[in-house]
């Protein structure tokens, strides 16, 4: 793996409760996201994985510790760290094309470049037939494709995804996962993906960071080396590889241990 793109050092996050006391959601997390890699944050609910992602995005400030993107400290949200949410975030008043152009437009990208890039990424996510449709005319999976194209077209250095396929049905989720592998391969996009779905983690990850709960901290960092450093955009294929079942079993055991600790 190559150079570090994003590093977290000694990150903790406390949330203040209504009665004035504080609860620790994330405790002393240090991790590295390498350039051109897909990093999956996996863990049971309550492990603070979404909070960690939101801190990477700059939507939450850490209570302690440092986050660096390359050489610069992360301060607040910015274009370089684009985020896709679980909930649909398409701007309903804009067509698919205008949605995808939105980020470029507010960042002053010229009309011609905007058009070219928008068309490229809309094609990449397979929505070219719906380019002039409004999001309200699209299905849930298609709306997530719009959100992904919109974020990618804005040219972020890091794509952050918070359970992006959690609201989709199983078949759609499967297609979306294959799409993400294809995007990682073709666009060399660095990604951090939060999920609690073991299969999804194994399928997408170059590196899995397993978190334990209450408070959230890194339990184990797992490299799915049975993939031999390749990304495989075909789910039927990957489940048959030797090593897949063993890794899934290991992750299940980790999840179970966490559950019993409760």
């Amino acid at each position: 793996m190559s150079d570090a793109l994003l590093t977290m050092k000694g990150i903790s996050k406390d949330f203040e409760l209504a009665d004035g006391s504080a609860i620790r959601a994330v405790n002393d997390v240090s991790l590295t996201v390498e350039e051109n890699s897909v990093c999956v944050l996996l863990g049971p609910s309550g492990c603070g994985k979404s909070t960690i992602l939101r801190m990477m995005a700059g939507l939450e400030d850490p209570s302690a510790g440092d986050i660096m993107l390359k050489q610069h400290p992360v301060m607040g949200p910015a274009r370089e760290r684009g985020m896709v949410f679980q909930a649909y975030t398409s701007f309903d008043w804009l067509s698919v094309r205008k949605n995808v152009e939105f980020g470029m437009k507010i960042n002053g990208v010229g009309a011609r470049e905007r058009k070219e890039k928008a068309e490229h990424f809309i094609k990449l996510v397979g929505l070219e037939k719906f380019i002039d449709a409004y999001p309200t005319q699209l299905s849930g999976g298609m709306r997530q494709r719009v959100a992904i194209a919109r974020t990618l077209a804005n040219g972020p250095e890091l794509l952050l995804m918070d359970e992006p396929f959690g609201a989709l049905d199983a078949e759609t989720r499967w297609h979306m996962q294959e799409l993400m592998v294809q995007i990682a391969n073709e666009e060399n996009t660095s990604m951090v993906i939060v999920t609690h779905d073991l299969e999804e983690a194994i399928f997408l990850a170059d590196k899995i960071i397993f978190l334990s709960a209450h408070p959230g901290r890194v339990k184990e960092v797992i490299i799915p080396d049975f993939k031999d450093g390749k990304r495989i955009a075909d789910k039927e294929h990957i489940v048959q590889l030797p090593g897949y079942a063993a890794l899934e079993h290991k992750l299940m055991r980790l999840m179970r241990e966490e559950g019993e600790r409760e």
Partner: peptide, 27 residues
């Protein structure tokens, strides 16, 4: 207006003015 819409705008690089006029207002 859903927080995710505003946060999406922020992570796309929107400032306060753009968030108000291009996201909150039309929403």
């Amino acid at each position: 207006v859903r927080a995710e819409l505003i946060e999406t705008a922020l992570t796309l690089g929107a400032n306060r003015r753009i968030t108000l006029f291009n996201v909150v207002l039309p929403a």
